[in-house]
Design a protein around this nucleic acid. Sequence first.
RNA 1: GCGAAAGUGGCGGAAUUGGCAGACGCGCCAGACUUAGGAUCUGGUACCGAAAGGUGUGGGGGUUCGAGUCCCCCCUUUCGCACCA
Length: 831
Amino acid sequence: MLKELLCLSNYQAGKLALGKRAMDEKYFPEVIEKKWQQRWAEGQAFEAGNDDTRPKFYSLEMLPYPSGFLHMGHVRNYSIGDALAWYKRLQGFNVLHPIGWDSFGQPAEQAAIKRGVNPRAWTEENIAHMRGQLKRLGISYDWSREIAAHRPDYYKWDQWFFLKMFERGLAYKKQSPVNWCPKEGTVLSNEQSSGGICWRCGTAVEKRNVEQWFLRITEYAEQLVGQIEQIESSWPEKVLKRQRDWVGRSEGAYIDFSVKDSDKKIRVFTTRIDTIFGATAVVLAPDHPLIVELMKDSALMNDVQKFAEKVAVARARPADATAEEVKEGLNTGVLAINPFSGENIPVWVANYVLMDYGTGAVMSVPAHDQRDFEFAQKYSLPIRQVIAPASHGQPSAEPVSVTGTDQSAEMHQAFTDYGVLINSGEWGGKLSEVAIREMTLFAEKHKFGGGAVTYRLRDWGVSRQRFWGAPVPIINCDDCGAVAVPYDDLPVMLPENAEFTGTGQSPLAGVPEFVNTTCPKCNGPARRDTDTMDTFVDSSWYFFRYTDPRNADAPFDPAVAAQWTPVDQYVGGDSHAVMHLIYTRFWTKFMRDIGLVSFDEPVKRLLTQGMVTNIVEGTDEWKAMSKSLGNGVDPDEMIRAFGADATRLFILFAAPVENELRWIETGIEGGVRFLRKVYSMVWRWHERLSDLSQRHDEPAPDEIGPAGQALRRKTHQTIARVTSDFEHLHLNTSVSALMELFNELNEFDVTPTNASAADVFVVREALESLTVMLAPFSPHVAEELWEQLGHAGGLIPKVGESARWPKVNQQHARKAELEIPVQVNGKLRSR
RNA sequence: GCGAAAGUGGCGGAAUUGGCAGACGCGCCAGACUUAGGAUCUGGUACCGAAAGGUGUGGGGGUUCGAGUCCCCCCUUUCGCACCA
């Protein structure tokens, strides 16, 4: 499969056959890459200084899980982030480009259960291997800031944050139905079970009633929607849309329906108060707590309870994504009073009303809500039309007169648009928009309702019945309840001697030395909480830790973090659009509220890169590379065969960063070809160019021949193009621009031996520009060429050195003559 | 079903604001050098046509001197959401 282009063997074979000089002229990525990786390490080339006064740039890629092996998705992710880091460095920015490990989580524990290995050892081994891979790729990380979530000096701060939230009532424990993945044997958050399937393994989730810790993300629902405007222009629209949908802000009103012959009230939420005259029932969720009180003495109580149980059982079953549940319900015999019309209407329970949205109760308006319509048809509830279509959407000042009282017989579906109110007493004739406003005020004035906003977002369940995570720092005392572990006692360390049985109980529960402790409040015997935290807690704030990674007294020094954050450019897959990316926004807002940061949004600009796909053997389908499909490509194999530079160049060239990238091995060979050609061109010229003391001043325009002028023009056009492409993250076209510049150089009809001083100047300008602009894509070979061109000390400007990135001279970039196409009747006539 | 985005050669994709469609690369074809080529170099490569010329950016209509780009209708694909009151 893999074509035998192996550089190492070529190099060794070549060394035997050719002399040293002949070898130098050939491009051997293996040799160049080793050389520069070593120099970068020795010179600490990528370490970001906190006391550097140049403008900062924080380039960040999403924290990887240390599965043991880098896959091509990682390579793409880091190649993009690294290109931007290099681009900014070459422009003279002080760049922070860190890496770390999301090293808590299921796979380590699975390995422990299945193969009896120690999760810590397993994780550390994986990290060591992947670190080696990243270094072979030559990604320019500041390794001195590396962090790993599973180390006590990191998870201590997870626990610290948890306690800060606990103190403020933002972390709380409650018994609640949660998403349970039967395959993973653990609870999942709503975000991790979107669509009813486990985000990790794709198994359909069940509902289970478990006592859980929750973080009150709903407290920030309004900000999570409202503050989107701060990042609207620099985050992908699709991510923001998903976040908006996920928070699900909905404006409407609540209304209290009095219960006949009772002092109880049923509160409903509606976005269509204008349809209230058409309400022909009030419908409660089967598990609505009011039911028990309302039906204390009712003969129907038993039936309703049975119905509720049936629904609960159905809901606990793994969701079948395609099947829409059939609407079912039961009349409770209780009557409610419509506060607008005074009418008595029946109270039902039904499976299509959800307890955990709004108030768990709705007013049923069959004529104007499709669900209510279907329900009413099934149970023969009256369907009463109260909204008429407004013609052309024009406000009609005249009340609409309606003849005939029962148009509902003709309705085949609910009319859900806004319109004009009819059959609505004093509100008749008003437009929906107006009626909604006025009726809400009316309800408020008469104290039976008012404006309300509800959210779909639920609190974040962070308890996991797992070992390999940060222990929840809480001690349960029979007398004092849940008590915070004192800050001085952090971290609550994971024990070394847990047993992994895979039973779904936290392995921590089986370690008496861990569990048994004393209550910090009363000193009585007490038990530690045995849940650990969702690993998404670790990744919610990790990039702040990079700014101050060894701080032993705080998660980070706010003053240091303020130098670097917010993140200027974040790069990652869009699979985290409503998981990590919403959690980290929440976390940042919390950190702001406790004075750690001074802004609302952690990430200025987000890029969601596309997947890397490969053809699945035996099919014609392109799918994301994966072990199970057997279509994975090993980055190390690519590095060995083609070099890291060519691999990275190809990945960035092959497709726009946000598109799917189809892996074509011949494409990567094209990358090698290009680098080899550039390399040998620099070699051809380097004797004329490398002596910088012989460098010429800029020649007068008339000293440069027409071919030189053209090359110069191309050089400056390329600088303009590549620079603008970087600003817009169009990395694929900037590579093609570099190739065009090379092609122009290749056609430049001057040889090193016959070149005039002016020619040499033009060639130097072109080659130096090409070399510098190549560095973000293929940094090793760029460094090598820069050295060949006579420069010592490496490409990255030190403090005090001027920026390396070439500057465009618009004068030179301008076309010498303008060709004007002639069109007659839209047809091209001559050129 | 609802919502959003996108349809350009054999393929990945170019085409700042409406102004020479197909840059750049892959693949393919031909030639050169070679014992050899899956190396390298040179040239060609949207379609029809011998040529002149014509036709072309999912389909149909429109605006315009001029449309891949703007407007309307339709088709297809991909991705989200899926009882959220």
